[in-house]
C-alpha cells in the first residue's frame, strides 16, 4: 500500500510540475503509533523543477500541495517539502563538493 502511495504521489507531481529531479520518500515508519494520522502516510518530497523559478517558498509549496490535493484526503497525513529550481539545485551541489 505504501509503495503504491509513493508511486501515486510521484505520478501527480510529474504531471503537474515536470520535475527534473524527483524523490518521494515514505517516512511513515518514523511516525509509527502516531494515532491521529488515521492510517494515512508521512512523506517527504524533493522536487527540482523549472516551475519554481521566480517564486517564493510559499508559492512553491502551494504548487506542490495543489498537485497533490486529491491525495491529501486519503493518502497523505503529513508532507515535508523541499522545492528547488534547477539553478539552486546545481549551486548547492557545487558548494557541497
Amino acid at each position: 500500500m505504501s509503495a503504491e502511495r509513493v508511486e501515486r504521489i510521484r505520478e501527480y507531481l510529474e504531471a503537474a510540475l515536470a520535475p527534473q529531479q524527483l524523490e518521494v520518500i515514505d517516512e511513515s515508519h518514523l511516525h509509527a503509533g502516531h494515532a491521529s494520522a488515521g492510517g494515512k502516510g508521512h512523506f517527504r518530497v524533493r522536487v527540482v523543477s523549472g516551475r519554481f523559478s521566480g517564486l517564493g517558498l510559499l508559492q512553491r509549496h502551494r504548487l506542490v500541495y495543489d498537485a497533490l490535493s486529491e491525495l491529501m484526503e486519503q493518502d497523505i497525513h503529513a508532507l515535508a517539502i523541499e522545492a528547488r529550481t534547477p539553478e539552486e539545485s546545481n549551486r548547492s551541489k557545487e558548494s557541497s563538493s
Binding site: 510559499l58 509549496h61 517539502i81
Partner: peptide, 8 residues
C-alpha cells in the same frame, strides 16, 4: 500574512 508551514 501566512508565511508557511514547518519547512518554510
Amino acid at each position: 500574512e501566512l508565511v508557511g508551514g514547518c519547512d518554510i
